[in-house]
Amino acid sequence: MPGTKRAKIKIGTKVKVVQKQDQRSGKLTEGIVSKLLTNSPTHPHGIKVMLQNGVVGRVKEIIE
């Protein structure tokens, strides 16, 4: 499931994010959301979040 809608992402959700430096390669990092950083209800490139390990990136995939 794509991560473009803020309502679908909660703290504790397992997601795959793309970090700023990995945008060209498309490398995804998996983790659990600790903080939502995007305030708008949707974002075309994915909602920006912080993972529990401190990684910041845009959600590309929500893991069910």
Score class of each variant (00 low, 15 high):
residue 41 P to L: 04
residue 37 L to I: 00
residue 59 V to F: 05
residue 50 M to A: 15
residue 4 T to Q: 11
residue 27 K to A: 01
residue 50 M to L: 12
residue 17 V to R: 00
residue 61 E to S: 10
residue 38 T to H: 11
residue 40 S to E: 09
residue 6 R to D: 04
residue 9 I to T: 13
residue 62 I to W: 02
residue 11 I to T: 15
residue 28 L to V: 01
residue 60 K to F: 10
residue 25 S to D: 05
residue 19 Q to S: 08
residue 16 K to M: 10
residue 14 K to N: 12
residue 5 K to G: 03
residue 61 E to P: 05
residue 28 L to T: 02
residue 16 K to I: 00
residue 27 K to R: 15
residue 20 K to N: 11
residue 41 P to M: 03
residue 48 K to F: 06
residue 62 I to K: 07
residue 24 R to S: 07
residue 59 V to P: 01
residue 44 P to Q: 08
residue 52 Q to W: 02
residue 61 E to N: 08
residue 4 T to L: 03
residue 38 T to G: 02
residue 35 K to I: 01
residue 19 Q to D: 10
residue 15 V to T: 01
residue 20 K to H: 10
residue 28 L to A: 01
residue 44 P to E: 09
residue 18 V to P: 04
residue 18 V to K: 03
residue 43 H to E: 13
residue 5 K to S: 04
residue 33 V to C: 09
residue 2 P to R: 02
residue 58 R to Y: 07
residue 11 I to K: 13
residue 18 V to W: 03
residue 24 R to M: 13
residue 13 T to F: 02
residue 35 K to H: 09
residue 51 L to V: 15
residue 32 I to G: 09
residue 5 K to I: 02
residue 32 I to P: 11
residue 62 I to E: 06
residue 48 K to A: 12
residue 2 P to T: 08
residue 21 Q to V: 09
residue 24 R to K: 14
residue 54 G to N: 10
residue 12 G to F: 14
residue 62 I to Q: 13
residue 32 I to R: 13
residue 34 S to W: 04
residue 59 V to W: 02
residue 34 S to T: 15
residue 12 G to C: 08
residue 31 G to C: 04
residue 18 V to N: 01
residue 27 K to P: 00
residue 15 V to E: 00
residue 20 K to S: 04
residue 12 G to V: 11
residue 63 I to C: 13
residue 20 K to L: 07
residue 49 V to W: 00
residue 11 I to S: 13
residue 56 V to D: 02
residue 64 E to Y: 08
residue 6 R to L: 13
residue 10 K to F: 09
residue 3 G to L: 07
residue 46 G to K: 09
residue 15 V to H: 06
residue 7 A to Y: 04
residue 47 I to Y: 14
residue 21 Q to A: 14
residue 44 P to N: 06
residue 13 T to M: 10
residue 51 L to N: 07
residue 6 R to A: 12
residue 24 R to W: 07
residue 31 G to V: 03
residue 25 S to R: 08
residue 34 S to D: 15
residue 21 Q to I: 12
residue 37 L to P: 00
residue 30 E to P: 01
residue 25 S to C: 06
residue 29 T to G: 01
residue 43 H to S: 14
residue 34 S to Q: 14
residue 60 K to R: 15
residue 27 K to V: 08
residue 61 E to K: 13
residue 37 L to G: 04
residue 27 K to E: 05
residue 63 I to G: 03
residue 31 G to R: 04
residue 29 T to A: 06
residue 10 K to V: 08
residue 17 V to T: 05
residue 62 I to T: 11
residue 33 V to H: 13
residue 44 P to S: 09
residue 1 M to P: 03
residue 40 S to D: 12
residue 52 Q to N: 09
residue 47 I to Q: 06
residue 15 V to R: 00
residue 10 K to P: 00
residue 49 V to C: 02
residue 6 R to P: 09
residue 25 S to A: 14
residue 6 R to I: 11
residue 15 V to G: 07
residue 54 G to E: 09
residue 7 A to N: 07
residue 50 M to E: 15
